[in-house]
């Protein structure tokens, strides 16, 4: 019998051997401290922190998506003022590192500790002190979501532009308003283009939440892991524990992304209804329903 892909098989065997070697070696190294990994993996402090990381991710993404949608629609507006506002927002938030932005948001209560009523540099009538100090969790969400909105705006814009102009025209000709056209016709079709990169954004956000240390907020997964290891002087098992949790969440997100993508490619495949679920059915990626 002849092997069909001798090269591939050789490489695979070598790789498997290397992985086995690495695992065997890792199991013996004391620095990894596997018993400690097991001990902390389901430590209540860690699982609570994991929940906080999830909350940071979800809140920041939801706000980021909504703001991004608004910014994207603003950028497509025929009104130059509206367009410019959106452009400047994107310029600032995409042009500066998110870490730096988070430090800024952390200092916001120092910068804006009062409202001055008067004419700048000339006269001050009154100064209103701001006593409210927002919780660090809140500031973290603000920082993460405002940054995310700038990236989501570009993703949404690309999605809206991907929908054939004839769709908007057909909806208009039926007497649908601009809002109805967007909601019922344009946005659902743009989802096919918007969802894959948005899924990536969610996964990326989950990991970016580690940067809230800049605020400084430390009740998230990585912050908690760091704090615990600062007490116990064993950083490595806690790094592994945090990584396992992040990996667990991202794996779930990837599965979810797969199903969402499937759901929103409805009507794009060319198959007859009977074979609609055929995974081999060709999918038209670029066009709209093979109309052209």
């Amino acid at each position: 019998m002849r092997l069909r892909h001798p090269g591939r098989i050789t490489v695979a065997v070598i790789l498997i051997l290397l992985v086995v070697l690495f695992v065997l070696d890792a199991a013996q190294r004391t620095a990894f401290d596997w018993p400690d990994v097991g001990k902390y993996l389901f430590d209540q402090r860690i699982s609570q922190a994991a929940l906080i990381t999830l909350q940071l991710t979800v809140y920041s993404m939801v706000i980021g998506i909504v703001l991004g949608l608004i910014l994207a629609i603003m950028r497509l507006s025929p009104n130059p003022v509206v367009k410019a506002v959106s452009w400047v927002y994107l310029w600032i938030f995409r042009g500066t590192p998110v870490y730096v932005q988070l430090v800024f948001w952390g200092l916001i209560t120092l910068i804006y500790n009062s409202i001055i009523i008067g004419i700048p540099f000339v006269h001050t009538w009154d100064v209103i002190k701001i006593d409210w100090v927002p919780p660090l969790f809140f500031i973290s969400v603000v920082g993460l979501s405002l940054n995310e909105a700038a990236y989501m705006a570009e993703i949404v814009r690309a999605g809206l532009l991907s929908v054939d102009a004839g769709q908007e025209e057909a909806a208009k000709a039926l007497g649908m308003s601009w809002g109805q056209t967007m909601r019922r016709i344009v946005i659902p079709q743009s989802m096919r283009v918007i969802i894959p990169p948005t899924g990536n954004e969610v996964i990326s956000m989950l990991k970016t939440t580690t940067l809230v240390a800049a605020v400084p907020f430390s009740l998230d997964l990585f912050g908690r892991a760091r704090d615990i290891s600062a007490e116990t002087f064993v950083p490595i098992p806690l790094l592994i524990v945090a990584s396992l949790w992040y990996l667990f969440f991202t794996s779930i997100l990837m599965v979810g992304q797969y199903f969402l993508e499937k759901r929103f490619s409805r009507g794009i495949g060319r198959g007859r209804p009977a074979i609609e679920n055929d995974p081999d059915a060709p999918v038209i990626v670029g066009g709209v329903g093979g109309v052209r």
Binding site: G166, E169, A170, A173, P188, I268
Partner: peptide, 14 residues
Amino acid sequence: DIGMVFQHFNLFPH
């Protein structure tokens, strides 16, 4: 009140 039919149909593919 005015129906329109297009050269490229412009049906809603979703």
